[in-house]
Each structure stands twice: as structure tokens, then as C-alpha cells.
């Protein structure tokens, strides 16, 4: 087992808006190691992107991170630092963000400035995070473009983002993210909105680069098919909490948490789904301002236990050797 690079401990993210408090992330705990791909899965509004924004120091007011620790190990064998101690605009945070902790965004269309040549985006990152000279930066940028599969790098370096297709822009984004050999790469829905064949190209590319440059990848997605194809471990989130964490084979074959089970059954083509009618989860995700007492999933749960599930928040504990889950069905106190 490689060493842990990033560890989240009980991280919370809150937004104090005019209409009330949105508790986007309610105590998220996970860790990723080098060479590992952790997928964070959940429906829209479950806080899966917010938790990674916290690690990037990207939570803007009115949002804040009121509690938790995000421990990051910058070099092998070095001590960990708590990223949350840094102010989001501090020098240390700016050094880490985009340097050692990198991110790929969902929107390759808007993430690149239309008025700058794409080389400028690469040059900027290299300029901020390395001591390379101008020529060296250019060479490194061209090397990066070649690495992510953009032919004619030296010519393409001088082109503008509108001259590239969606898939090509996502490749450029990846090149920008990888420019400084990050230790952790957050990939936030990297293939949503791309065509299947392009999606396959991008996922293969991320895998290849992960092997070559040794980093941890946190893949944030709603697409279970992408997870099944690329992840090593999977964390399923619901309403700001991780409800289940296990390795990919276990979670697809024997999910434990009722939400995960229902999710797996509702996805066409998954091992648990029937061919005829799809199983569905009753109801829908409650609106962000609504407070659900006890287990957040209990109003939609088939194994709802009155008096327990709607009162006590289940703890995030191992259900067996392979799975950690937050469900009263598996906690010792209430029996099985």
C-alpha cells in the first residue's frame, strides 16, 4: 500500500445565505494514496464537488469550512500539513493550489480564457510554481501538450481556445493541471458533456498520466459507469455525507448502505439491476435548505427503522473488512 497523500477528517462546508444555512458538506472523512483513484459518487447537490473545493481552498464567502482537517503530504515521507489552516488567499495556499493539488473542472469551455493563447495558460502555471526560465517553460509546455495527446504542440501552443474542440480543451485543462507534477488531482466531472468516444479517450489519458507521474486522483462524478471503469475505491455521498466507502468491486457486487443498494439497482446495466423494470428510489433529494433529522436518507429508505433512523445520525463505521458505511443496520448498538 502506498502512502497516504491526502486525508480529509470530518470536513464541513456551510453557506450562510439570506434564505438560511446550506450545510453542503456535513463531516466528510476519506483518504487517498499515491497511484490510487478514489471516486466520489452522488446525485447533484450531494456536496461531492464542495468537499474537493475545500481541499483546494476554493470555498468563497458566504461559504466557509467551520470544522475538520484536510491533511496533505507534500513530499514522500514528509509530515502532513493541515490545508485548512491556510487562508484561501495566503501564499502557502496559492503555492499548493494548482501546484501540488490540482483540479480539472467540468466545463472545458469556460475554464480557458478566450482572449489568451492556450500556451499562456500553461506558461502562467509554470511561471507561478516553478523557477524555470522562459525557454524552459516553453519546452515544458510543449512537452505537456504532447503528453496529453495534442499533436503539433509548438504550433498549437500559439492558438486560442476556440480553435479547439471540447475534448481537446479538456486535454489542455489536464495539461495545465499536471504542469507542476501534482500529488493530488481532483477531477470534477471531467467527462460530463463529452461524447462517449472522447470520454473514453480522456479517461484513458488520465489513467496513463497517473501511472507515469505518480499521483492520487480523486474522481468526482455522478456517472457510475465511469466509476466502474476507472476507480479503485468508491465513496458514495448523500446529502453532504459519505454513506459508504469500499473498493470498486465490493461496492458494485455487495453494496451495504440502502442508498447504495438502491442506486446500484436503478442504474441500467449494473450487476444488480434487472432487465425489465428498473428499481427506483422513492422520492427525490430534499431541497438544500431543508433539515433532515437523523440519517439523511431515512425518508426514502426501504429499511427505515422508526425511532432510530429519524433520531440518531448513524456513525461512519466498518460494516465488515471491506466496507465502511454510515447506517444503523450495521452499527453494533442496534443490532442487525
Amino acid at each position: 500500500m502506498s502512502e497516504t497523500v491526502l486525508e480529509m477528517k470530518e470536513v464541513h462546508v456551510r453557506y450562510d445565505t439570506d434564505d438560511g444555512v446550506v450545510h453542503a458538506v456535513r463531516g466528510v472523512t476519506y483518504s487517498v494514496s499515491l497511484d490510487e483513484t478514489l471516486a466520489i459518487v452522488g446525485e447533484s447537490g450531494c456536496g461531492k464537488s464542495q468537499s474537493s473545493f475545500a481541499a483546494m481552498g476554493l470555498i468563497q464567502p458566504p461559504g466557509r469550512v467551520p470544522a475538520g482537517e484536510i491533511l496533505f503530504r507534500e513530499k514522500p515521507g514528509a509530515d502532513t500539513v493541515n490545508v485548512l489552516k491556510f487562508h484561501r488567499n495566503s501564499r502557502q495556499m496559492r503555492r499548493l493550489r494548482g501546484g501540488k493539488i490540482a483540479m480539472i473542472f467540468q466545463e472545458p469551455m469556460t475554464a480557458l480564457s478566450p482572449v489568451h493563447r492556450i500556451g499562456m495558460h500553461l506558461d502562467e502555471v509554470l511561471c507561478l510554481h516553478t523557477n524555470l526560465g522562459k525557454q524552459e517553460r516553453f519546452e515544458r509546455a510543449c512537452q505537456l501538450l504532447t503528453d496529453v495527446g495534442i499533436p503539433d504542440a509548438e504550433k498549437r501552443y500559439h492558438q486560442y481556445s476556440f480553435e479547439f474542440s471540447g475534448g481537446m480543451r479538456q486535454r489542455i485543462m489536464i495539461a495545465v493541471a499536471l504542469a507542476c507534477n501534482p500529488r493530488v488531482l481532483f477531477a470534477d466531472e471531467p467527462t460530463t458533456g463529452l461524447d462517449v468516444t472522447i470520454q473514453a479517450q480522456i479517461l484513458e489519458l488520465i489513467k496513463k498520466l497517473q501511472r507515469e507521474s505518480r499521483m492520487a486522483v480523486v474522481l468526482i462524478t455522478h456517472d457510475l459507469a465511469v466509476v466502474a471503469e476507472t476507480a479503485d475505491r468508491v465513496a458514495v455521498m448523500y446529502l453532504g455525507r459519505i454513506v459508504e466507502l469500499a473498493d470498486v468491486d465490493t461496492i458494485f457486487a455487495t453494496p451495504k448502505h440502502p442508498y447504495t443498494i438502491a442506486l446500484m439497482k436503478s442504474v441500467i446495466g449494473s450487476p444488480l439491476a434487472d432487465d425489465g423494470r428498473l428499481q427506483v428510489i422513492r422520492g427525490s433529494v430534499p431541497p438544500p435548505l431543508e433539515h433532515v433529522p437523523g440519517c439523511p436518507f431515512h425518508p426514502r429508505c426501504d429499511s427505515f427503522m422508526p425511532g432510530v433512523c429519524d433520531k440518531v445520525i448513524p456513525e461512519f463505521l466498518p460494516a465488515d473488512e471491506k466496507t465502511i458505511t454510515a447506517c444503523h443496520l450495521y452499527s453494533k448498538k442496534n443490532g442487525n
Binding site: V280, R282, G283, S284, P286, P299, R300
Partner: peptide, 9 residues
């Protein structure tokens, strides 16, 4: 039946 609960909620 699946949606009734959403509605009442």
C-alpha cells in the same frame, strides 16, 4: 406510488 411521497413531502 413512487412520487406520492415526494409530493406529500
Amino acid at each position: 406510488g413512487e412520487t406520492l411521497d415526494v409530493e406529500t413531502a
